[in-house]
Amino acid sequence: MKAIASMGAWLFDWLEAVGRAGIFLVQSIFRMPVRFGESVSLLVKQLYSVGVLSMVIIIVSGTFIGMVLSLQGYSILAKFGSEEAVGQLLALSLLRELSPVVTALLFAGRAGSSLTAEIGLMKATEQLSSYEMMGVDPLRRVIAPRFIAGVICLPLLSLIFSASGILGGHLVSVSWLGVYDGAFWSSMQQSVYFDTDIMNGVIKAVFFSVVVTWIAVYQGYECVPTSEGIGKATTRTVVLGSLAILALDFVLTAAMFGDF
């Protein structure tokens, strides 16, 4: 009986937290900066810290993942005498699955945690209260540009990841392992469709970007404003963000490619 009651209480708390986070999201989207010039300069600042600063890690990991995929794929496909299919394997696994998911995971670790820590620190040093005291809504000034920047950056980063992965894979399979260049590209082009594969990957990345950035800014905004609280919130961003990405990926994959 007591267990049921505490389960109920937990569920209640959880629903309340979800509701609060939802309201927070809606408010920060609909209270966009009023002045155009101001909003552009705020957004550029955030695009820089969220997007540009994540670019190196994305390009490097994309290239390596493409290289590893080619090596692994080649060693198996060579047994069936269809090494050319390595291009197809590389492109499909990157575009449909790996680049949105891995980019989002890296994004949660790189940009998400720094967003949480930054906002948490602004809360701890009373900067958020300070905005409020000046009659400036911190949701529109601090949260909205960060959220929008995150939603713009992740799909772009995911595309960059795919492209670097394919180039990395091309390097390994064509230049090192000797797969015929024309066959590499043509097997890819025959099996990859722009709308089902590339666009579905982008759509996945858009979903992930909303969820990860939402978690990151919300954790920062709601954290306990102490050094311990910020640390915990940062960890929660990475853990919750990663779990949410993987769970959401399953749902999206089932919806997009489930009929195969």
Partner: peptide, 12 residues
Amino acid sequence: MGMLFQSGALFS
């Protein structure tokens, strides 16, 4: 109203 916060709360 103006408020001087304990930590200063300057925008970093």
